[in-house]
């Protein structure tokens, strides 16, 4: 796994090209998205790929300087001013106890701003990079294999993404996390 971030993005880009037909498919299956297809936003935390439900996401913005708040949990990174609105920033790596440090500078990070429906206050999550918007079949998702982590893991399932690497088809594993569950915890905390 010594690939550079550039190569990864290249692959992601090629994956995106591959995914163009499924997006079209997803468009066809728009009405039955609950039962059939899943639309997600893929992003990077350290070396692993994660995904959240597309309908929980409002937009993706670049990193801006974060104002730290005193006397808050360590994953509460702080607040930013997003077009006049105060937005709370959660460091998802801290929240999910990913201890791996990222090599890239924090200025290259992205903030995924979540939909206001799921949170009281406007909230964003800090991730290393946002890769793509993708649509998957339910059959590509394994919901049982990750249940060993229990409720706290907040993992909805593992998405198996088919990618081509040097003419060999291969599954890349994407961890589909339940962002609502995590933020409920925060709200309660």
């Amino acid at each position: 796994m010594t690939k550079t971030a550039g190569e990864k993005e290249e692959k992601a880009a090629s994956a995106g090209q591959d995914l163009t037909p499924p997006v079209e498919k997803a468009g066809k299956n728009q009405a039955s998205r609950q039962s059939g297809n899943l639309q997600v936003v893929e992003f990077l935390l350290g070396k692993e790929h994660y995904a959240v439900d597309l309908f929980d996401v409002r937009e993706v913005v670049e990193y801006t300087s974060i104002t730290q708040l005193p006397n808050t949990p360590s994953y509460m990174k702080g607040i930013i001013d997003l077009r006049g609105e105060i937005t709370t920033i959660i460091d998802l790596k801290e929240r999910l106890n990913i201890l791996e440090k990222t090599e890239q500078p924090i200025e290259n990070s992205r903030i995924i701003v979540l939909d206001e429906k799921i949170t009281k206050a406007k909230t964003g999550i800090l991730v290393d990079d946002v890769l793509a918007v993708s649509t998957f079949e339910r059959s590509d998702i394994d919901s049982t294999s990750a249940s060993g982590g229990g409720e706290d893991a907040a993992i909805n399932g593992i998405i198996k993404k088919k990618i081509k690497e040097k003419e060999h088809e291969k599954n890349e594993l994407i961890i589909w996390i339940d962002i609502r569950h995590l933020l409920v915890d925060i709200g309660q905390g």
């Binding site: 997803a26 597309l54 309908f55 993706v60 913005v61 670049e62 946002v130 918007v133």
Partner: peptide, 13 residues
């Protein structure tokens, strides 16, 4: 790239 992503999100929604 970022703009394309956001556009994709908007489009999906």
């Amino acid at each position: 790239n970022l703009l394309a992503l956001n556009a994709a999100i908007e489009a999906a929604r």
